[in-house]
Design a binder for these strands. Structure first.
Length: 399
DNA sequence: CCCCCTTTGAAGTTC
DNA sequence: GAACTTCAAAGGGGG
């Protein structure tokens, strides 16, 4: 397996990434790796298993219909990608799945054609056995959902992006949808659609729009994502809706890549749809893989991380950490010098600590009063500090 | 609408 | 450096 020269101490493809196989009697599973059996199901939630087994046959028709639907969908996207060369070199690297997450500066040693062709720098990954488009399942940086024409990307983007010029031609294919066009895509395209909503303003400082940039939903809305990257793409249809900040997602690890590839297969085999149960199966199968088989995914993950680092050198996994109630989170996320960005409970501790100890006793009760009103959101650590500072147990105080 | 579940691995934080 | 936490994907389920 060729190794990219990471040129540093961060050996992304280190051998120690290889996991040790658990001794859970999985040798048998290795033998039956490709045949999902009832024994697999037996260890799952019984309800799910029973439902699966009972419906095994009856669901076949439904499943077939679903596959047909997927096939039509896949064909539709194949049409959109007619101008994208397809690599069929077999095995793991069968199809060009990294299209939307181009290896801009990484000649792909896995592709026989070399890095010359527009898609040559992309890591081809997965075979899709169940009618899903070959580009669909494994990598989130796929170009599968994009129409060939790039209406909103600057035409000279390739000239602006310097070394990324080669890929920018692809990118114009990968990120072509206007924000208004997002609604036309299917739910499975939503991951990509978020990045599309960025428009040209969603460019990474490198000038590369990246599908990993997505507006967060829910908790991720609090992210302190690189604000320079985000400009409100267009007027919000709803006045009260806060503008979504895009989020650079974490690169997928080896197991996530494996899950992405194998999920459809497991679903088709066992008719389960509950992801929790499916993931249990996938976890077992992952352990049942040989080291060589796993190595393919570790290598892919390593490349993914490497490219991610190149595209977003300032990105940190910490950027996506969200838990407003935890002091350590706020301190970690914003640092001590930006306590104005901390949440209330997090600010409480340093605020108290800012007082001279002699003054604390006199203000302690009033502070505690305020703190107790926010007690539900006060973290245990905050409570401990409060107790220590005030030499009382705040739970014993009757406000 | 949002969170939980469930998996492994990477990265971050805390002590 | 160990231990712990969070987040990546997925989508059904439930509040």
């Amino acid at each position: 397996m060729p190794q990219l020269n990471t040129g540093g101490g961060d050996d992304l493809g280190a051998n120690d990434e290889m996991i040790s196989f658990k001794d859970e009697g999985e040798q048998d599973e290795k033998i039956q790796e490709n045949a999902f059996t009832e024994r697999d199901l037996a260890d799952l939630k019984s309800s799910l298993v029973n439902e699966s087994e009972i419906n095994q046959n009856t669901n076949a028709v439904v499943r077939r219909g679903h596959q047909d639907e997927q096939r039509v969908y896949a064909e539709k996207h194949r049409e959109l990608l007619d101008d994208v060369p397809k690599h069929q070199d077999g095995g793991m690297y069968k199809t060009p799945a990294y299209s939307g997450y181009p290896f801009l500066m990484l000649p792909d040693p896995y592709l026989p054609n070399g890095p010359v062709s527009p898609t040559a720098n992309k890591v081809s990954v997965v075979q899709q056995p169940h009618g899903v488009h070959p580009l669909t399942s494994l990598l989130p940086y796929s170009n599968e959902h994009f129409s060939p024409s790039p209406p909103h990307l600057p035409a000279d983007m390739s000239q602006k992006t310097g070394v990324h010029r080669h890929q920018s031609q692809d990118l114009s294919t990968f990120y072509p949808l206007t924000p208004g066009g997002v609604s036309q895509i299917t739910p499975s395209m939503s991951w990509f659609s978020h990045s599309l909503m960025l428009g040209s303003s969603g460019m990474h400082p490198t000038g590369i729009p990246h599908p990993a940039i997505v507006p967060p939903s829910g908790k991720q809305e609090h992210d302190q994502f690189d604000r320079n990257m985000y400009v409100k793409p267009h007027p919000e249809p709803k006045r009260d809706r806060e503008p979504k900040k895009p989020v650079i997602k974490k690169p997928l690890n080896a197991f996530m890549l494996y899950m992405k590839e194998m999920r459809a297969k497991v679903i088709a085999e066992c008719t389960l749809k509950e992801s929790a149960a499916i993931n249990q199966i996938l976890g077992r199968r992952w352990h049942a893989l040989t080291r060589e088989e796993q190595a393919k995914y570790y290598e892919l993950a390593r490349k993914e991380r490497q490219l991610h680092m190149q595209l977003y050198p300032s990105w940190s996994a910490r950027d996506n950490y969200v838990n407003p109630g935890s002091p350590k989170k706020c301190r970690a996320r914003f640092g001590l010098n930006q306590q104005t960005d901390w949440c209330g409970p997090c600010r409480c501790v340093p605020f108290l600590m800012s007082f001279h100890p002699a003054s604390l006793s006199s203000i302690c009760l009033s502070l505690l009063s305020a703190a107790l009103h926010a007690l539900p959101s006060l973290t245990p650590r905050g409570i401990v500090v409060l107790n220590q500072l005030c030499s009382v147990n705040i739970f014993e105080i009757n406000i």
